[in-house]
Amino acid sequence: MSEGLNYTFLIDTFFIALSGVPITLLVTVVALLIALPLGFLLALTRINQVPVLNWFSRIYVSFVRGTPIIIQIFIVYASVPLILSLFFERYNININVYDINPIWYAFIVFSFSTTAILIEVFRSALSTVNKGQLEAAQSVGLSNLQAYLRIVIPQALVVALPNICTATVNLIKATSLGYAMSLQEITLKAKVAANVGYNYVEAYIDIFLVYIILCSLVEYGFKLYEKRLRRYKYVSA
């Protein structure tokens, strides 16, 4: 132990950690694909004060904000199999709930928490777009949907993008908690490798590096996209 870092292990494990990236990214992308449209629609129900749904979104947001993700993971990981097995028994479906790949639970948990965050992101972004924009679009004959797609959302997106970026990076980091349900992502893979020879420090360094590379790339991508989107703003003024 006192010989310092085991460099061979450090390098080997780096690639093991790297092999967890696809799962991390898959969970991130699926969670975003669900949370972006859903968060947007629920944000609309908040802004337009749609009865019931508006209240639902509010309670949902404060619930997710008020609980640590790890607790949400425990709740889903413990309760969904129970519900499913009851359901399977009842309808005589021959599936063992414990054979279900934990990635499905990860999809549920992370979509759930990201949706709540994006509701707030979209709500504040949409409220920065003056109501006159929608009215002007309607007055020239655009339908509500067209007005949102062509005028309101592009403007709201520019405002929302930095926050969506933060949410995405936070999501990537949060997927590391997936190890609690044996999700084969970056953290778990590196930790398992470390278990053999107790090379935890090396493994943590690798995990650290992989996340920092991954998150930096994602941030860079968002920056580029944001630059393209906001070309209409303050061009010279």
Binding site: N130, A137, Q146, Y232, K233
Partner: peptide, 23 residues
Amino acid sequence: FQNYNLFNNKNALENVTEGLVIG
């Protein structure tokens, strides 16, 4: 409109053509 309400994400020409092409 009193406050013009031009589409901020469109240039002058696009502001004018938006209602023609889409509407």
